[in-house]
Simulated scan of single mutants.
Amino acid sequence: MISPGLADCLSRWLDYLRGVEGASSATVDAYCADVTGFLAFQGAHLGEETGTALLARIRLTDMRAWMAAERAGGLQARSLARKLSAVRTFAGWLSEREGIDATAILSARSPKFTRKLPRPMEVEAARDMIGAVESQTDTPWIGARDTAVLTLLWGCGLRISEALGLDAGDAPLPARLRIFGKGGKERIVPVLPVARAAVERYREICPFELTPGSPLFRGAKGGKLNARLIAKATERARMQLGLPASATPHAFRHSFATHLLAAGGDLRAIQELLGHASLSTTQAYTGVDTARLLSVYEKAHPRG
């Protein structure tokens, strides 16, 4: 349990994340759970009600005790690092507004973990996957639907949630599509003719009425398409083709970025198309193409 005063602070912080930072509902829920768990642990650990003054009493040894308890409970280093980030963000926000000394919380070191680089598919593998996914069902409109979704992921760099969030009123898709991504951030993405054609083919044979205000992509019973169904179709296609387990729907978005870079795309422009807040995130998507970048550098640099 946490005190009413601290619960109010937590509520105001979450409102700040939603309203000012534009955080998504999923992010806000995760931060709420992370910080609530931390405060409950420290209250029990220090043996007193978790009022705001408690944060100033927390020392590095208390932070280590919390992290040790989380690891003992089976939490992996990556997940613990995410929790610590949420706790530090909350403590920093609160210290600015309440004048609380949260030095120990803010200075706690994040556990080390190996950051996995994304594994995009080769161009031919992406093409083969899109071709094979249609054969994973005996229902033509479902095959056309899955093909259209994957074409949008690879051809436009959409997240699966963004593709499945499209409204029927968005189609026929324009040459430039307005997308609202994480945190409600808006971006404009170009839509390739092949992607528009794939969506139109699906619309022509979809058995459900696709009226504005309803989902563009439908499940077998007419409801909004679940991302798990696309994941299953993709899994069957990759197994048919003998591709690795990394060939997932999200890999098409990674591949979009890397293939654009390989074709001479500008990293900043790709960042805008993907809707990344940080260029470092885009660099992680395309980090597997370092050899090509070095080759371009050696040929193009004036001192080369």
Rank of each mutant, 00 (worst) to 15 (best):
T258S: 10
I2H: 00
L75Y: 03
T52V: 15
A237L: 14
I188E: 14
T211A: 10
P207I: 12
D138R: 14
D289E: 12
R59A: 10
L46I: 08
G184P: 14
W154N: 09
A44D: 10
K299N: 14
C206T: 09
S25A: 14
A53F: 07
C206A: 13
T248H: 08
L274H: 00
S278K: 06
R176I: 06
E186R: 06
A72D: 11
G169T: 04
S135M: 07
A247M: 03
L166Y: 02
A263N: 11
R236G: 12
Q42R: 06
G222F: 05
A23T: 04
E272N: 11
L279R: 07
V189P: 02
P302Q: 00
F252S: 03
E209I: 15
R109H: 05
W13R: 01
K182F: 05
H250T: 05
R145A: 01
R88Q: 15
D289Y: 04
Q283V: 05
R253L: 04
C206D: 11
K185G: 04
E124T: 08
G74W: 04
G131F: 12
F41K: 05
T258N: 02
E235H: 11
R187W: 00
A33Y: 13
L39Y: 01
A168Q: 07
L177D: 01
S246F: 04
S85F: 09
K112D: 15
Y297E: 13
E49S: 07
S79C: 14
F90V: 02
T211R: 08
G22A: 03
Q136N: 04
S255H: 07
A53G: 14
T36S: 14
A125L: 01
A126S: 01
F252H: 03
V149H: 07
A102M: 02
G287W: 06
A257W: 00
T282I: 06
A284Y: 15
R82T: 09
L55M: 06
L261F: 09
S95H: 03
A132R: 15
T139N: 07
S11M: 10
H276I: 03
S3I: 04
L243Y: 09
V189R: 05
C9S: 13
